[in-house]
């Protein structure tokens, strides 16, 4: 799956820990220094071993797993991947905002699963900054998707300036100027 980050398609530097893999102790795969994304279950089962590793840690959450469940552990992760099992399951939008705005998570926030071009705009605004996309989508189309609507009514995360009632005269001027 191609990964979209900062407007570029990049090779994913992260690896997922296979369901069956023992957490390595230096002798088995994956290597100690690989950046590894684990599920919540893996994290809970193998927490101590995972913390012994040299590589960075990422956490993948299903849409029925709220980050609130693990708020006190967030400091251990450089990446959190939130699943969209279907694009219509919008729970991760709230999770993303909570991670960014309430829990102060500043690492990579990745959208995974059924991630479509036409949802990118919403995802960006909620704080996602990387996207695992289906391969047939061209990068140009993704760029178009995020520049189609530049006028925003509501503050969300640390996004661009807002207009309308919540922007006030200043915010409105800025938002229009940004077009």
């Amino acid at each position: 799956m191609p990964l979209l980050k900062d407007g570029q398609a990049i090779d994913d530097p992260w690896a997922a820990l296979p369901e069956t893999a023992p957490v390595q102790d230096g002798t088995t795969e994956p290597a100690l220094d690989v950046d590894l994304i684990v599920t919540l279950d893996q994290w809970r089962a193998k927490r101590e071993a995972l913390l012994q590793r040299n590589g960075r840690l990422g956490l993948r959450l299903r849409s029925d797993q709220s980050p609130a469940e693990i708020a006190s552990d967030l400091a251990h992760f450089d990446l959190i991947a939130l699943e969209f099992p279907k694009f219509t399951d919008g729970r991760a939008y709230s999770y993303a905002r909570l991670l960014r705005e309430r829990h102060g998570f500043s690492g990579e926030l990745r959208a995974v699963g059924n991630v479509l071009r036409d949802q990118l705009f919403f995802m960006l605004r909620c704080g996602f900054d990387s996207f695992e996309v289906a391969s047939h989508e061209s990068i140009a189309a993704w760029h178009a998707a995020i520049s189609e609507v530049t006028v925003l009514y509501q503050p969300a995360g640390s996004g661009p300036a807002t207009g309308g009632v919540l922007g006030g005269p200043l915010g409105r001027a800025r938002a229009v100027a940004a077009e």
């Binding site: 219509t88 709230s94 705009f121 919403f122 605004r125 009514y153 509501q154 309308g164 009632v165």
Partner: peptide, 16 residues
């Protein structure tokens, strides 16, 4: 009207 503006393409609440 205020709610209309706030809810227009609300990024968090478009897939309830």
């Amino acid at each position: 009207e205020i709610i209309r503006q706030w809810s227009s393409l609300h990024p968090e609440f478009s897939f309830l």
